[in-house]
Design a protein around this nucleic acid. Structure first.
Length: 103
DNA sequence: AAACTGACTGTTA
DNA sequence: GTAACAGCCAGTT
């Protein structure tokens, strides 16, 4: 019926569901979206989010618990995370043990 | 339509 | 423990 959904739309939906104060990984989102090997695409989709999107893209990090972005983007993501009480080390590392979202 | 891209990840050394 | 490699596949050109 609603077959107009794309992988991209499912990713948007899932990211939107990550609660404040929690994080998850690209790979986890790919799995939830039904394409377990498409972690890289998740990053690609988030990179191309429309400006002004309200999606909490900053709650998505890599499997090592690091922020995958660099430079200014890394700083913006770190600020957004600390803003919601998530502790981020100077190197951009987050404790997945503490903050991982489990749907 | 074909080629290129890469906010990743599992495997291997 | 870390580092290098190669597969991965939706989106973009």
């Amino acid at each position: 019926m609603f077959d107009n959904d794309s992988f991209q739309q499912r990713v948007w939906q899932i990211v939107a569901a990550i609660p404040r104060g929690y994080v998850t990984t690209y790979g986890e989102i790919a799995r939830l979206a039904g394409s377990p090997r498409a972690a890289r695409q998740v990053g690609g989709i988030l990179r191309r989010l429309p400006a002004g999107s309200k999606l909490p893209w900053h709650r998505v990090i890599n499997r090592k618990g690091e922020i995958s972005l660099t430079g200014d983007d890394l700083n913006r993501q770190r600020n957004a995370l600390e803003e919601e009480g998530i502790e981020v080390s100077n190197n951009g590392i987050i404790s997945l043990t503490r903050y991982r979202w489990q749907p």
